[in-house]
Amino acid sequence: MDAVLGQLFAGLSLGSVLLLAALGLALTFGQMGVINMAHGEFMMAGAYTAYVAQNVIADAGVALILAIPLGFVVGGVMGVVLEATLIRRMYLRPLDTLLVTWGVALILQQVARDVFGAPNVDVRAPSWLSGSVDLGITQVPAARLFILGLAVVAVTGLALVLTKTALGRRIRAVVQNRDLAETAGVSTRATDRLTFFIGSGLAGIAGVALTLLGSTGPTLGSNYIVDAFLVVVAGGVGQIKGTVIAAFGLGLLQAGIEYSTTASLAKVAVFALVVVFLQARPQGIFSVRTRSLA
């Protein structure tokens, strides 16, 4: 029983990490149809933000709490710069954007290697996150519980922004029909830029969270980017709930299969299941219905 509960929590925890990584991607991919391969490097930037914060501020707890908004801003600013300089020019060529941002990702990784050194660095977890928490039925690591909470907060925050604010209304309008939104007076340019800021900022937060799980290195983001994209594909674009379900679904699947076989076989099985799943729902779990053929 304990083992099953432990595995269940492992799945939820993996799901929350995937969710944090994929949330921003789902947003930018859903709205603009561009694949940002540098998303993982924005996560890496968030993680190094946490590392720098800890070197400046002695108290690990304060540094971590401060690093979350800082990571958001660092990721967001990098995203806006990328959008304004490159992606903006390439909206009509989404597949090429993938390769261009891959080039950006390579450069950013090398910058990290040159600035922080190739070996991984470690961010100390504050004392209140280093132990484990007794949930009555099972013991769970506090850091993982914190990340789960952070993912819930991020999703709720994003959902509130999308449903309750004027910006959210504009974003949804652009996702559903870009031309019609433009005609109705929505500045799609400004909306795109803000979406990119939020989406990349979420990557920064994900990076801060990842420092609690392991050490930070230049390839931190690229380890997660493929899984994060798989979540977006399985979840369908344009709606957060698809991403949430897909992230936890894949996390639980991975942990569940891992329990009975090995981690590497679980990865392959999850990939195969996603392909099979797309047979049934080629557009993912949820998709915005349009009349367009493409």
Partner: peptide, 13 residues
């Protein structure tokens, strides 16, 4: 893009 991502996931797996 969906195909691109799936083919990449295949390589990773």
């Amino acid at each position: 893009a969906y195909f691109a991502i799936l083919s990449q996931a295949l390589a990773a797996a």
